[in-house]
């Protein structure tokens, strides 16, 4: 075959989920520019329109929040953006891997296992969230939305929040067989309301009881509390541990669920 036969390269190591991340990095060479542009424009819009614009109105009515409105709201935006990106990346792109371009089926005919494919896709989303949250934070800082170095902890808080939710969406992506209409329901009736009822724009103490319970259940509220606590303080260690624990429960069950559904889907 061919003119010269090159000997088989040695199989250097059992492949890991990071090989799937590497694939996504190769693929990202095509679209990293649009990723960065989106990653800059989104925070600019929110920080300017709501943080600075709405912030003037809020701040003129007396500083009941104790800090400028932008400082109060920006860590929450950062967390909400992480959750929305995570949900988007774990939905249709994963479904494409199963159904449309079928790349996942190609992966599991190599030594990679369905669990590794699942882990690799989730790791890739985590990488994206870290990059995107860092960008978000830089823009917040440029517009005076930060007050102290602790705010850096908003990046891991937002990433954890996004991953807690992304893992569940990934499990859903592995289950859906139709054209992905389930995701439209998810975005309209879960992701958007979560944004409005998770203490993003105002403390949830402003909400009636039922609204507060919505927030308690929502991973976004727990992530927002963590990120805001990092940005402006006033968060007790016990509360922080509680929020982290709640998000970890989501993340661990989500990953287990997603791995299981990947196995079922890819070994039919």
């Amino acid at each position: 075959m061919g003119t010269e036969v090159v000997a088989a390269p040695p199989l250097s190591a059992r492949p890991s989920a990071w090989r799937v991340v590497e694939y996504q990095l190769v693929a990202a060479r095509r679209y990293w520019r649009s990723m960065v542009i989106l990653g800059v424009i989104t925070p600019l819009t929110y920080v300017l329109a709501l943080g600075v614009g709405l912030g003037v109105v809020v701040d003129n009515n007396g500083r009941q929040l104790g800090v400028p409105y932008l400082v109060f709201v920006a860590p929450a935006f950062l967390t909400a953006a992480a959750l929305q990106i995570a949900a988007a990346d774990a939905s249709f792109p994963l479904m494409a891997g199963f159904k449309w371009i079928r790349t996942f089926h190609g992966m599991v005919s190599t030594p990679l296992t369905p669990d590794q494919v699942c882990d690799g896709q989730l790791l890739w989303i985590a990488v994206r969230l870290i990059v995107n949250s860092s960008l978000y934070l830089a823009i917040m800082a440029a517009f005076g939305g930060t007050q102290r170095w602790w705010v850096l902890l908003a990046i891991p808080a937002a990433t954890l929040t996004g991953m807690a939710f992304a893992s569940m969406v990934a499990a859903l992506a592995a289950v859906l067989e139709n054209e992905g209409n389930g995701f439209n329901v998810l975005f309209r009736f879960v992701v958007t309301p979560m944004f409005l009822f998770s203490g993003t724009f105002y403390p949830i103490s402003q909400l009636p009881d039922w609204g507060r319970w919505l927030a308690y259940v929502s991973p976004l509220w727990h992530g927002t509390e963590l990120a805001r606590g990092a940005g402006i303080g006033g968060l007790s260690a016990a509360a922080a541990i509680g929020h982290i624990a709640y998000l970890m429960v989501w993340l661990v069950s989500g990953v287990l669920l997603a791995r299981w559904r990947f196995r079922v889907r890819l070994t039919k």
Partner: peptide, 12 residues
């Protein structure tokens, strides 16, 4: 990318 799934090195 496919070769990398088999754990093959970049150089090889």
């Amino acid at each position: 990318v496919y070769g990398r799934y088999f754990g093959m090195s970049r150089a090889a």
